[in-house]
Design a protein around this nucleic acid. Structure first.
Length: 194
DNA sequence: AGCACGATGCTCT
DNA sequence: GAGCATCGTGCTT
């Protein structure tokens, strides 16, 4: 399988968010190669997007979003959960795609164990299933070196993809709160042919 | 099956 | 010191 190159991420964030649906998220953990298909994403686009962390400008936390595309932006929230994002657009423009759900397809049993048998559907759940924490913040997802990368996969046809408002932006003002910048697979599941 | 709420700690004001 | 791109439990229907 081929790693998705940096040029893929150096494009409009909405395009990247849509095209990451179906891609293979790969994580090497304790010598095991865990793989999940990305089934849900959200776009966060620049300082003018009041749902995006970069709305407050460049800070220690958001610095990664201002860096080159194709890197991981991992942050901690609600006192419990790690969120995995992929930095998009040109260096200097803060934007990223939040990976909200995966469908485990290789070593699914390991990921299930790490979740005590519960599902991996949710942004904080997939990072727990794949062992992604602040250690992975800032790593280059276009190389295998750090044990976390994204591989290309067959395109998911438009009829299988839905979009809607982003989740959890309770206090974000309109129009940002309702922008249809969330992409997800219908029925939460891709046909893996077996 | 759905909703309400508490957990829990980091980041920014 | 408040708020937060969430999750799991427990209670209600």
């Amino acid at each position: 399988m081929s790693i998705i190159p940096r040029a893929f991420y150096n494009r409009p964030t909405l395009t990247v968010a849509r095209e990451l649906i179906g891609a293979r998220l790969v994580r090497v953990l304790n010598g095991q190669k865990l793989v999940g298909l990305i089934t849900e994403t959200e776009a966060y686009i620049g300082e003018t997007d009041l749902g995006c962390h970069a709305k407050a400008g460049r800070t220690a936390r958001t610095a990664v979003m201002y860096g080159p595309p194709g890197h991981a932006y991992v942050y901690f929230t609600y006192g419990h959960h790690w969120m995995l994002n992929v930095v998009t657009e040109r260096e200097g423009f803060p934007a990223a795609v939040l990976v909200r759900a995966i469908q485990p397809i290789e070593k699914a049993e390991i990921m299930s164990q790490r979740r005590s048998g519960r599902d991996t559907f949710g942004p904080g759940k997939l990072t727990q299933a794949m062992g992604i924490t602040k250690t992975e913040n800032g790593i280059d997802l276009t190389r295998r070196g750090a044990g976390l990368w994204i591989e290309a996969a067959p395109a998911v046809p438009a009829r299988l993809v839905t979009k809607g408002p982003r989740v959890g932006l309770y206090t974000v003002p309109e129009p940002w709160k309702s922008k249809p910048w969330r992409f997800l697979v219908k029925d939460w599941r891709l046909d893996t042919g077996g």
